[in-house]
């Protein structure tokens, strides 16, 4: 059932994002051929307008990604589309999981697009990618220090954990707002701020100077361990938040 929900959520996501991702990449490519050719000749040229357009698209993409996550949850599960979703024969946690996975993937792709497009824009010689030597050097580097890959992997995990925590906070804030009889939007914003104050307080209290020192001791001996600890500290509150979201959807759902 979760897979079927994902199929539906990803289709909705694709309808909304295919255009903006495409636009970002296309504008980046166009810039590549106009921007660096014109340099030094005409500063206020088409190319700078195009650069502006590109930056606009990237900013729009970021804004859209954040609002997409909030929107899919509040409209899809707490709004009129919830009439459809909550009458499907699935558990509330499946609905939440599907939205969550879709949200994380959306952010990752948006991040990737934002990350890749400057490279597309730069006047790089792409033929280098086709050369054997380039890849051989990379492979050699990796085999000499295999732990780099692991570190990279852990770093990616941490980025995902950050996203999960952020999305979980959004979901919980929206769910708390949903509990109110009125001013739900305001309540959601307030509880989002409240949740972050809570998190910061929690972290500052748990990670007192003493604990940080202890952690640093571990860190010096093992960098992987410290990254994993960081991931765990991000994921534990995220998991608690999501559990609270599921509880609210299970017991307090109020589609009036």
């Amino acid at each position: 059932m979760l897979l079927k929900l994902l199929k539906y959520d990803f289709r909705a996501m694709w309808k909304q994002f295919s255009l903006i991702w495409g636009a970002a990449l296309v504008l980046a490519l166009v810039n590549r051929f106009t921007l660096f050719r014109d340099i030094g000749y005409d500063i206020i040229s088409n190319s700078s307008l195009l650069t502006l357009a590109f930056m606009g698209v990237v900013i729009a993409m970021i804004v859209l990604s954040v609002s997409f996550v909030a929107d899919r949850f509040s409209k899809g599960l707490l709004g009129s589309e919830g009439y459809l979703m909550h009458t499907l024969p699935v558990w509330p946690w499946q609905l939440v999981a599907s939205k969550l996975i879709c949200g994380v993937v959306t952010w990752m792709i948006s991040g990737a697009v934002a990350f890749v497009s400057p490279f597309l824009m730069a006047p790089m010689d792409w033929s280098i990618l086709m050369e054997f030597g380039f890849w051989r050097d990379i492979m050699r580097g990796l085999t000499q220090r295999p732990d780099t890959l692991l570190l990279l992997f852990e770093f990616c995990l941490m980025v995902v954990a950050v996203m999960l925590q952020f999305i979980a906070s959004i979901y919980l804030a929206l769910s708390i707002g949903h509990l109110l009889p009125r001013y739900r939007r305001l309540g959601s914003v307030a509880s989002f701020i409240g949740l972050y104050i809570l998190l910061v307080n929690l972290y500052s209290r748990v990670f007192s100077a003493h604990v940080v020192r202890a952690l640093l001791d571990v860190t010096t001996s093992n960098v992987y361990g410290s990254l994993l600890t960081a991931i765990a500290t991000l994921l534990i509150p995220a998991a608690l938040f999501l559990a609270a979201v599921c509880w609210i959807l299970n017991h307090k759902l109020n589609l009036e």
Binding site: M1, A12, K15, Q16, E81, G82, P89, V90, W91
Partner: peptide
């Protein structure tokens, strides 16, 4: 989920995603 699988519900409003 079990009861929802056998209930067919016509709500008093539209629930479609417009796309």
């Amino acid at each position: 989920p079990y009861t929802k699988s056998m209930v067919s519900y016509l709500p008093d409003r539209m629930y479609f995603a417009s796309w």
